[in-house]
Amino acid sequence: MLEVREILLLMAEETRKRGLPLPVPENALTEWAEGLGLKERGDVLLYTGGLYQLIPYINAFVEYLERMEGSRASGFLLKAARRLKLTGLATAIAKPRREEVEYSRRVLRAIVRLLQKAGVSVAYDPRIDGYSGVLLYDMGLEDLFREHARKVYNALKSAGPSLVVTVDPHTTHILRNVYPKYIDGYDLNVKSYLEVLAERRIELEGAGGEWVIHDPCLYARPLGIIEEPRRLLEAAGVRVREPKRTGKMTYCCGGPLESIAPRLSRSIASKRLEELSSVSKRIVTLCPICYANLTRVSRGETIRDISLVLAGDVD
């Protein structure tokens, strides 16, 4: 069994040192926006929270943990990785699959194109875009999360937006529902890009065809973002199919358990994939964590983020 304490300490130390839970390149969160010519200030500010960009590195981390899980030496190895400046771990994580990095880049650029097509003049400041701290909160590192949340909040407030647009359910939930519990006087207006798109008239030339939808737990339950993605998919010519467990009764993808119990996470993801693929072999996800976990156990199904399906970029 993995030494959970060592994993949490590893994440905590990296977050304190660099603001990110894993040792990744300095530009890993912002290079996707290069060449887009986005202004840095505006009424509508895009905040990614870093999850899409971190997925290739999280996948490499999970593979590293899977190799150690079940080893009696796992605790020693994790402790050594942490105390020896994460040398071996950093080497493993620093070489994510190129196709995964490009996929995350495509998703974020597709989101910007969709917003612009809907008439939203979106700004993006790479100096204040960063990690939301979601894993710190999920793993119970409350004191560090509070400290990190205040830094993120102050940076966003300094930009002066009237609306902060997020790109994934974890970041949306953390900023909208969790930060206010930890920050006095919190007053950011936060919406998912899917909500923003659904509020506007937008002509979509999407992928079309039949896709089964996987609702992420946070969109479906605390955020109540269920109908918006379906309306957008239908507007893009998609025939939306529903799995047995859908909407508020959706089933977990196995995340974020993969960071501390990768085998259990894989088992849960496999069960969910079986449910989805029994309806359609083309699966649309709305969350980077869901995409990563379902793809990890895929048996050849086509799994794509909703942004790419809406933009018609599914090849």
Rank of each mutant, 00 (worst) to 15 (best):
V4C: 10
V4R: 15
V4Y: 01
V4A: 15
V4L: 12
R5E: 12
L10D: 08
A12H: 00
E13A: 06
P21I: 10
V24H: 09
A28K: 03
A28G: 09
E31A: 12
W32H: 02
W32D: 05
L36R: 13
G42W: 05
D43L: 11
L46Q: 12
T48G: 03
L51S: 11
L51K: 13
Y52R: 01
Y52F: 14
L54S: 00
I55D: 11
I55Y: 05
P56E: 12
Y57K: 06
F61P: 07
Y64S: 10
L65I: 10
M68V: 02
E69N: 11
R72E: 14
F76C: 08
L78Y: 10
G88E: 13
K95D: 02
P96W: 07
P96Y: 01
R97D: 14
R98N: 09
E99G: 05
S104G: 15
V107K: 08
L114Y: 12
L114H: 04
A123E: 04
Y124E: 11
R127P: 02
G130Y: 08
V134T: 11
Y137V: 07
L141Q: 15
R146C: 09
V152K: 12
Y153R: 05
L156D: 07
G160S: 14
L163Q: 06
T166H: 07
I174K: 02
L175V: 08
G185Q: 07
Y186A: 04
K191F: 02
S192V: 05
L194N: 03
V196C: 12
L197C: 08
E199A: 01
L204M: 10
G208E: 12
E210Y: 08
I213K: 04
H214K: 07
H214M: 07
L223T: 08
I226F: 09
R230E: 04
R230I: 13
R230D: 02
L233G: 07
E234C: 00
A235Y: 11
G237V: 05
R239E: 15
G247N: 06
C252M: 04
C253I: 06
L257A: 15
R263D: 10
L264F: 14
L264C: 00
S278A: 14
S280A: 15
K281P: 00
L286A: 00
I289R: 10
C290M: 12
C290H: 05
A292G: 13
N293L: 10
L294T: 03
E301R: 12
I303H: 03
R304D: 06
D305F: 05
L308Q: 06
L308T: 01
L310P: 01
